[in-house]
């Protein structure tokens, strides 16, 4: 199992090469692509997943205007279908406070774009304020079909490894049970001055991700990571949807 896992992790960031990758896995890897962060979130928002307010623009000046409209501070990111792992690439600027800084950030990020990134844009998002981060997602299991995941830890999810799965579709009871199955229940209650996590909203998010998997067989996987808890309500700060390429 560990072996398979490490292979899967590797397959996200490296091209399929020699080694343990089976033909099936290689094939799966080569015939899917990730949507840009902006398109991923639009897709999720379209099915009812709460998503951070944001705007996609093409140049630094528009980015500054967008930031003024959204309200400071903002996150400024380079966005494109080929940019699945922005943090690793260093193309994310968080907590940008002024219009001038937004312009500078956007200029820097555009300079970071590489040819293989394909078409890119600048994504300006409102900064979400919350101490707790969750991860939600969907993966297609070879035996049980599309399975929805909920986990603790946002970007630390793989290290924390407190995750639960349910087959799609999920009933509300299934989703509420999944939330209760997380080991780190204290994180879901009142936490450092923040109200408890709104379990109904969180359950609805899980149900909707499950429905999406059934309605859209071409969606290979979904990551909502992090899902930040803002005043008790989970909101998607970043997301990545992987779709099959015909």
């Amino acid at each position: 199992m560990e072996l398979l896992r490490s292979v899967r992790l590797q397959s996200r960031s490296e091209p399929a090469g020699e080694g343990y990758l089976s033909e099936r896995r290689v094939a799966a890897h080569l015939t899917s692509q990730t949507l840009s962060e902006f398109d991923s979130k639009r897709l999720l928002s379209g099915v009812g997943v709460p998503v951070v307010a944001e705007t996609s623009v093409d140049d630094p000046a528009e980015a500054a205007v967008a930031a003024e409209t959204l309200g400071f501070p903002v996150a400024v990111k380079l966005c494109g279908a080929g940019l699945a792992h922005k943090t690793e690439r260093g193309v994310v600027r968080l907590g940008v406070e002024t219009a001038q800084d937004v312009r500078t950030a956007a200029l820097d990020l555009l300079a970071e774009a590489r040819r293989q990134d394909g078409e890119v844009s600048i994504l300006v998002s409102r900064m979400l304020s919350g101490k707790r981060e969750l991860i939600a997602g969907m993966a297609r299991d070879a035996t049980f079909g599309p399975c929805v995941m909920l986990g603790v830890g946002g970007i630390f999810a793989e290290a924390v490894a407190d995750v639960v799965f349910r087959m799609a579709p999920l009933t509300r009871a299934d989703a509420l049970d999944a939330i209760s199955d997380l080991r780190t229940q204290r994180l879901l209650g009142e936490f450092r001055g923040e109200p408890p996590v709104d379990r109904d909203t969180l359950a609805a998010i899980l149900c909707r991700i499950g429905d999406l998997a059934l309605d859209r067989p071409d969606v290979v996987s979904v990551d909502v990571n992090p899902l930040i808890v803002v005043d008790g309500t989970p909101v998607a700060a970043d997301a990545l949807v992987e779709v099959e390429v015909p």
Partner: peptide, 16 residues
Amino acid sequence: TAGGARAAASHTGALA
């Protein structure tokens, strides 16, 4: 089980 999660470019796939 038959094959685990399909290789996916996602954390969810890695955790499945």
